[in-house]
């Protein structure tokens, strides 16, 4: 792992408070996840990819915005890993990388589509407005 990746990894672990090493790779998070089919990378992959420093693909993946923050994976994980918090942390890292490029409340109506669940809107709103 190069220095930059290592720092990013540490930063994500720090802001999430999640220790990915605790994961025993059972896949119960991904078995639980209601947004699974929308996601390119699934909750257990988030955990593994952060652990192994393979974070770049996550930062660029739409999966970041597909997570509903429903916390089902957090509730079910037998090892207390809390994958959703990791997803959120990567999402934050992505936002920070983009600087102050936050989503404005006014922008939301234009982005809405019919299939977007209510929760996702609320969650996105919270994440992107100042």
């Amino acid at each position: 792992m190069n220095k930059e990746t290592e720092n990013l990894r540490k930063e994500i672990v720090r802001i999430s408070g999640v220790n990915p090493v605790k994961c025993m790779r059972c896949g119960k998070c991904s078995a639980t996840c209601p947004a699974y089919d929308e996601m390119e990378y699934h909750p257990h992959q988030f955990v593994y990819m952060v652990e192994s420093g393979d974070i770049e693909p996550l930062l660029n993946s739409k999966s970041l915005y597909q997570c509903l923050t429903c916390f089902a994976c957090v509730d079910r994980c037998p090892r207390g890993v809390e994958p959703a918090k990791l997803v959120e942390a990567v999402r934050l890292a992505a936002v920070r990388k983009q600087g102050a490029n936050h989503l404005k409340a006014d922008d939301i109506p234009a982005l809405l589509d019919e299939d977007l669940p209510q929760q996702a809107i609320v969650s996105a709103f919270r994440k992107y407005s100042k």
């Binding site: 896949g27 991904s30 078995a31 699974y36 089919d37």
Partner: peptide
């Protein structure tokens, strides 16, 4: 509802 980790499918 289950995960199939090797096939990467739900």
């Amino acid at each position: 509802q289950a995960s199939d980790l090797l096939a990467n499918k739900q």
